[in-house]
Design a protein around this nucleic acid. Structure first.
Lengths: 340, 340
DNA sequence: GTGAAAGCGCTAACAG
DNA sequence: CTGTTAGCGCTTTCAC
């Protein structure tokens, strides 16, 4: 049979002090009231017994559980989201916190239930993460528990949030192309209604039209941002004499389709066609030949930031909310060359 | 200022009963002692006040936190592991449990610390997950807390565990090839020392030699199971007159390299070369052309199973440990045809 | 400098 | 059928 773990009372008895003294000695609380010798005796006794505090008990007393809730919509499913969790996890751990993770379908009712279940467990704050960058309405939970939105923001700034700087990333990618001398830059995007699409598209359009070009001639839309439809779209965009000299792809899977189409049309990348893309997926961008220039989604950093912001709000609940844009670094590889 | 949430005492007062009665009415404990009318009154009062029990307090009293610990080595980083977490999460939720997740580097000391930190929080059991299928020595934690190993097993069966059935998956893949009439089946594998390699290689070798072939002639090893080295290896394996008519790849990234080499050598897949692979990665296997037949790693199911087993052990700590092999289903696609 | 005692919110004996 | 009471293990006044 397993023997019960030691309690604070056992440590106190071993060190021949009261539980109050033992508690203060171990937690460095109570100012100078604990003598150095006493403190050492208690410490030694604790180490000796292999004492580990029961955080449920101390949590009940102090109302601090050192635990944060992470609720994500399908978040554990996507390769990206692992990075958000990991960023949040690492920052939490550095501050002595742990993460209670709940995955939902994203429906409001289910999210509400998840938040309530976390609150029952007395988590100190909540991270609300979404799989794709989006705008959501303010969660009801903010009334009762500090919240930070991850990969989402509210329309009104009523909660702190962090999202990728899609505009900045797009400008960085386009700078790679214009820096090499391209002006006729095509874009293949999706018709899905997501923030990422809207911002990347608008930023590209603005740039292309600044060059005096008609953006509609250079744009192809597909209903799913995956390889197969992208391949067909790329054939349409590239199989004509006035084709663009460079293509900005909505994401890396689209870029895969473009590579395939280019091979089929006898267009060498980057000599005959430059390609840039978004997402920097580990299994795609560095593996394509030539390796693909792509703007990375800073999921890890966003995860970290969200926890730091949440902890800041725990310390200072009245602090103003902040909406953060996390830079999307452009990873430079070999898919761009000057136009011919 | 936010107002304090209602406690059980508030519900009891509103329903004009004692806290004991309120507790029993809400938890359906105490057998028939609570009258139906009383129960309804209490329920109504609780709903009315928006009462949510404080699980920290009840956990202190009952020693049941309805929380499991999930410790993984770098687990949140890989695309697979998300599925393990999700499987575990879903099974846990169905049983009213939540997951406290800790990510470690995999070092024993760090894992030990993580386990201790979880124990301080009074988790009821621990899932120990590894990123790659491997053999590990029995964790010390099993002495004090129920444990189940996920994607790993102990040499001595001292803990319950679940790992993918690599042998079964490999046999399924090879059956696709032999069923189509192939006998000269090559294999490209890694030299990395992992369980997956050893089992897939041994199973393939056994089959090939059962056909009276010399397996060394059909084997190429690379030091990293990624696309680029695989491409070079495939050129070596395929650019000769007595080349195999089919290739079994260690994983999908290797298969990507084989596809590229085949294209370069003018070998159409599947007409001139059949290809099967392992892992069934979402971004690769279905996206290649032709779509790749691959054996899936059942991470989601393994995650589920591990929680079910852990819960079983909580109910019955003396139950015998079980070592489970989870089938790896072969996903049939278009990369195999009869040899010419 | 230290100990005694109260109490965090809840559940489970024990009475009635 | 229901109420009273005693803790779960810890922290924190308050008194010495």
């Amino acid at each position: 049979m397993k023997t019960k773990p030691p309690r604070l009372a056992d440590v106190a008895k071993a060190a021949d002090v009261s539980t109050a003294t033992a508690s203060m000695a171990l937690n460095d609380t109570g100012g100078t009231r604990i003598g150095a010798g006493t403190r050492e005796r208690v410490r030694a006794a604790a180490a000796d017994l292999g004492y580990r505090p029961n955080r449920v008990a101390s949590g009940l007393r102090t109302r601090r559980t050192h635990t944060l809730g992470f609720v994500g919509d399908d978040v554990a499913t996507t390769p990206f989201s692992g990075q958000m969790i990991r960023g949040a996890h690492d920052a939490a751990r550095e501050a002595g916190f742990m993460l209670l993770i709940v995955d939902t379908s994203g429906e409001a009712a289910e999210t509400g239930e998840a938040v309530a279940a976390l609150q029952e467990r007395q988590i100190e704050g909540i991270l609300l993460a979404t799989m794709y960058h989006q705008v959501v309405k303010a969660p009801k939970a903010i009334a009762t528990t500090p919240c930070v939105l991850l990969n989402a923001r509210t329309p009104d700034g009523s909660a702190s949030s962090v999202v990728p700087d899609e505009r900045g990333g797009t400008l960085g990618l386009l700078a790679e192309l214009t820096g090499a001398g391209h002006t006729r830059i095509g874009h293949i995007t999706t018709t899905e209604d997501v923030e990422a699409r809207a911002i990347r598209l608008a930023t590209w359009r603005e740039r292309v039209e600044a060059n005096g070009l008609h953006s509609d001639d250079l744009l192809v839309e597909i209903d799913q941002a995956t390889t197969r439809p992208a391949h067909a779209a790329a054939l349409r965009l590239l199989d004509r004499p006035d084709r663009p000299t460079a293509v900005f792809c909505f994401n890396d899977r689209v870029a895969m389709g473009v590579y395939r189409a280019a091979a089929q049309l006898g267009l060498r990348i980057p000599e005959a066609l430059s390609v840039v893309s978004y997402d920097d997926q580990e299994l795609i961008a560095p593996e394509l030949q030539p390796a693909l220039i792509s703007a990375a989604l800073p999921h890890y950093e966003m995860g970290r930031w969200s926890v730091l912001e949440l902890l800041r709000r725990l310390d200072n609940p009245e602090a103003a909310t902040v909406q953060h844009l996390m830079p999307c670094p452009v990873v430079k590889r070999e898919s761009v060359a000057p136009p011919r």
